[in-house]
Design a protein around this nucleic acid. Structure first.
Length: 576
RNA sequence: GCUCCUGUAGUUCAGCGGAUAGAACACUAGCCUUCUAAGCUAGUUACCCAGGUUCGAUUCCUGGCGGGAGCACCA
């Protein structure tokens, strides 16, 4: 079963193939959308055919237009300059695309199953640090990609990889022990740890003598043997366990607010020792070598410089652990492909890492999806510096704003309902804002823009859903009526149907590029088309035939909007 | 210095080599006795520069200029 849009395009190509002498490469013949709907609904530029037939493109368009007889879904065709423009019969289009949507419901636009088992790693927060809006972009993007890749027919396993060991942890524990040990604990322990870390970093910068103390703690933690260092290790290990849990509990809360779930959590602490073992093996085999005391692998011949695998004091690096993580992923979970969603600043590191895996004979499909970071107007955020916007603070402001807006519109609603609707509005505003720009656009965080629920925003799409829902409810829409699709005949309605028809192509494109912003833009365009329509044409107060046709049309719009929102990880609203 | 990303309206972003470069915010003027005004309608304003490839370049290539990021013991 093929989607309507593909059938239409195929038909156009067939018509041209029949009307033209020489064989042509079907992939080179593109079908585009004209800039203005009065020109046509779909168009074939004739430049390629012009080369083939050695006639001018205008001439080709002219001849084709005379030769081809319209029929079926193609109502008419017209040559305009070098373009051959096709007009779609709205009644035939409507019948095809609307019944397709009504039948497929949530699955409309879903692509065929390809049985690939993909592990998608994202969010990777560090314990003992604050979860800020930079981490938020990764979590929201990753979650959306999980939905998108699933909708494109893959089997996707979302996983998290938590940075619960390393230099930052040692730094935080050191600062805690030295400056905060005897202080009372605040309620939000996750946030508190972040503050300890930031403060520790600042103290450390001011006094270089402290560095030795921190390195010492890192050594003790990594030795992992409570008896070593005269029992000192145990003290740090216990503190690590206790504080680690504070952060993990905090992350759980955050993911719960965001509605993000993982099938599995990896921890850096579990791959540290296996990673060191791999590095030792590589050193023994001569694949890796010592350099200035550290262990490296030489990637110069691939133009990837030298890649550091272990520090000169024997403690592990991110790369050390990642070696073991990659093996763990493929061996334990039997996946076909491993994808990681990581900030583009680590593109070079990941290139080195992937090449290293290849060199050591681990030839598996590993992909990096890069995206640009979130910055503030007056510079990049850094946990070290403490100039970060925390997720929870941010969420609370947006939620507060949503509540004010909701209350002014629905004074009569019970508190519980106001809260629930506001929560969904806030999340949609936050998520949509992070997903509406392409992956390689830096997001300069603007609180005013984030607090706006107008225009190109999540709440706008939700609002559209609410209005449609309200109409359907008032009209007691059941979807059972027999529809006369000829009643849907305005240009605007046809445009809406064409937009609905293109949804499967949007899913494919978005998925191919790992870019949910394509979906966000599409949904906004569709919602805008509906809003114009809603303003211009009465639905309920029209004659029976027209009413039924318009109802099923707007119901189809709603279904696609809901579908798309769910890929973005946004819940629709029936009322707001 | 080398590598990657990037330069479009006052601002934030879209624009698979094709017809008149799109939105949103902001600003101006209208629209709630018809289905939710978180909305609709109309208006003002833009492709960094120089070459090249092409029938055609905002898009591709080269070189400038500007912005961001990365290049060994952080993750």
């Amino acid at each position: 079963m093929e989607y309507t849009i593909l059938k239409i395009k195929k038909q156009i190509l067939d018509l041209i193939a029949q009307a033209i002498e020489p064989d042509f490469d079907i992939d080179k013949l593109e079908i585009v959308v004209p800039p203005d709907s009065t020109l046509g609904d779909l168009a074939v530029p004739c430049f390629y055919l012009s080369k083939l037939t050695r006639k001018s493109p205008t001439k080709v368009a002219e001849e084709l237009s005379a030769k081809i007889n319209p029929g079926g879904i193609i109502k008419a065709l017209k040559n305009v300059g070098p373009y051959l423009n096709f007009f779609i019969d709205p009644a035939v289009l409507g019948k095809s695309v609307i019944s397709e949507i009504q039948k497929a419901k949530n699955d409309y636009g879903r692509l065929k199953i390809n049985h690939q088992k993909i592990m998608l790693e994202f969010s990777q927060p560090n314990t003992h640090k604050e979860f800020h809006i930079g981490h938020l972009r990764n979590a929201i993007l990753g979650n959306s990609l999980v939905n998108l890749l699933r909708f494109s027919g893959n089997k996707v396993m979302p996983v998290n990889y938590i940075g619960d060991v390393g230099a930052h942890v040692a730094k935080c524990l050191w600062a805690y022990d030295k400056f905060y040990k005897d202080k009372d604990l605040p309620e939000d322990k996750g946030k508190f740890l972040g503050q300890v870390y930031t403060n520790g970093s600042k103290k450390l910068e001011a006094n270089p003598d402290y560095k030795k103390e921190v390195d010492d703690i890192l050594q003790k933690l990594e030795s992992g043997d409570p008896k070593s260092f005269g029992g000192e290790s145990k003290k740090w290990l216990d503190l690590w366990k206790k504080t680690r849990k504070w952060s993990l509990d905090d992350f759980d809360k955050i993911y719960k607010i965001l509605g993000i779930q993982f099938d599995h959590f990896f921890y850096e602490s579990e791959v540290e020792k296996p990673g060191k073992k791999i590095v030792a093996d590589l050193l023994k085999k001569g694949v890796a070598e010592k350099s200035e005391g550290a262990v490296i692998i030489d990637l110069e011949k691939y133009d990837l410089k030298k890649f550091l695998l272990l520090k000169s004091d024997g403690s592990s690096l991110y790369s050390t652990k990642e070696l073991a993580l990659a093996k763990l992923k493929f061996e334990k979970f039997k996946i076909d492909e491993s994808i990681v969603v990581v900030d583009s600043r680590q593109s070079f590191y990941l290139q080195q890492f992937f090449k290293t895996m290849e060199v050591i004979g681990f030839k598996k499909k590993m992909v990096h999806i890069p995206y640009e970071f979130v910055t503030l107007k007056d510079g990049a955020m850094a946990s070290r510096e403490g100039n970060v916007v925390l997720f929870k603070d941010f969420y609370n402001s947006v939620f507060g704003r949503a509540k004010i807006e909701t209350k002014t519109r629905h004074q009569e609603w019970p508190e519980k309902k106001t809260e629930e609707v506001s929560r969904k509005i806030a999340l949609s505003a936050i998520k949509f804002n992070m997903l509406k720009v392409g992956n390689n656009s830096i997001i300069t965080f603007d609180i005013d823009e984030s607090l706006s629920f107008d225009g190109f925003s999540g709440p706008y799409i939700q609002y559209t859903c609410s209005r449609i829902n309200s109409v359907l409810k008032k009209a007691k829409f059941s979807g059972l009526a027999k529809i006369d699709y000829a009643k849907i005949n305005s240009d605007l309605e046809k445009e809406i149907m064409l937009q609905l028809a293109s949804w499967p192509e949007i899913v494919a494109e978005s998925s191919k590029n790992y870019d949910p912003s394509i979906i966000a833009k599409y949904l906004f365009d569709l919602a805008r088309l509906f809003s114009s329509f809603y303003q211009k044409f009465p639905i309920i107060n029209s004659s029976k035939d027209i009413k039924e046709a318009r109802l099923i049309l707007v119901d189809s719009v709603r279904k696609v909007l809901v579908n798309g929102l769910s890929i973005l990880g946004i819940e629709p609203l029936d009322q707001m």
